[in-house]
Design a binder for these strands. Sequence first.
DNA 1: AAAAAAC
Length: 475
Amino acid sequence: MSDVNAVPTAGFDSFGLHSDILRAVADQGYTQPTPIQAQAIPIVLAGRDVMGAAQTGTGKTASFSLPIIQRLLAHASTSTSPARHPVRALILTPTRELADQVADNVRGYAQHTALRSTVVFGGVDMRAQEAELRRGVEILIATPGRLLDHVQQRTVDLGQVQILVLDEADRMLDMGFLPDLQRILNLLPKSRQTLLFSATFSGEIKKLAASYLRDPVTIEVARRNATAENVQQVVYEVAEDDKRAAVVQLLRERDLKQVIVFVNSKIGASRLARQLERDGVVTAAIHGDKSQAERMQALEAFKQGGIAALVATDVAARGLDIAELPGVINYDLPYNPEDYVHRIGRTGRAGASGEAISLCAPDERKHLVEIEKLIKRDIPRGQLQLTRTSAYHERDGEERRNGRSGSFERRPPRSTRPRHVAPEDEIFYKPYEPAPAKEDEAADVKATSEPASPKPPKRQLAALLGGVPLKTPRD
DNA sequence: AAAAAAC
């Protein structure tokens, strides 16, 4: 999709997909399949196993969802009996957010069919998930841990799964999911179709594929470890203590309406988020120590455009699809060079341009060398003239001496602010207007009687945007 | 060395 020179392919109607699927595709506003869709859809329809290497943002989810729905439709039941709706397709993802997002897509593509789908992941109450599973679902999207939990509770039976998708398989292995994956795979029928998607084909991935795939067809879209050409990359060498000032200045100077700021540690993410808030940047943080409700609220508020900077750990590095994100800032360079590619893949999506800005402290130069080796190119060095520097730290120290951490204050009184801080309205980011949604959300809610994933109530979202401390949601 | 994921 990022390749503007790609030979135009035939439309979605050339695959022989059911009209109910084509209608859903048209509803989403898609007309031309992306390269991975053009390659994968016929192969999945033919029942073959697939080893797919594709970056997110290439249309990967539709490339497996559409043919899966088609194959399941052949024996779709309109009966209301749960027994007539066994799990026949299972999609596993490494993170909860990614599971939720894939589930949203699948629900959209299957909305005009009788097929049912739901999503299960940890961090939220099991009961609503159990109720959904009891009704019967043909398509189940899950993170491995919670799925095994349901298996133990006997709220789900995987004995009739015909199609398994391992999405972001390399990430799942990185995260130590191999034992869980093996346990799940042992519960599935031996005769099934398996689709494995991975950013890279490492030795471990090949081993996994050799054990669980049968004569797979390899599909490779973007060059491995390639970075999108429509992403402008730049690195600024700054002192560790100047990074925060650099972020604020970059947000202002580059007119970046929304960015994800990646930080290497959970504590660092929370701290930076607090500091940016004090600098007048509307911010939310997302990382593994936040409750699932907070994570979902932060992501939803960011997607709605009410948040300028989403400060994130690598929980958000892969797979998240946020429309036309104008920029990504690496506040810390990732330890694992692989993650650099994933992080900057959050911008410049679907043909739009994007900026990938990295800050590199002297201690991080070795990471930079590794990253440049991996992507096989040098990242241009930029010059950043900081208008203000580590004066912040004096202020932080002062607050600490006064016995105030500052963490509960949205911003300090004007008199305590250093002189050189820009007036608030210069660095306060007006809510960014997201592109109009392609699908009517109200209609979508009606179409699925009960959304599987709890969406943050509007009231809490408003509280978040207004800076009122978050309450624990009732669910 | 750090992140993620089940309770």
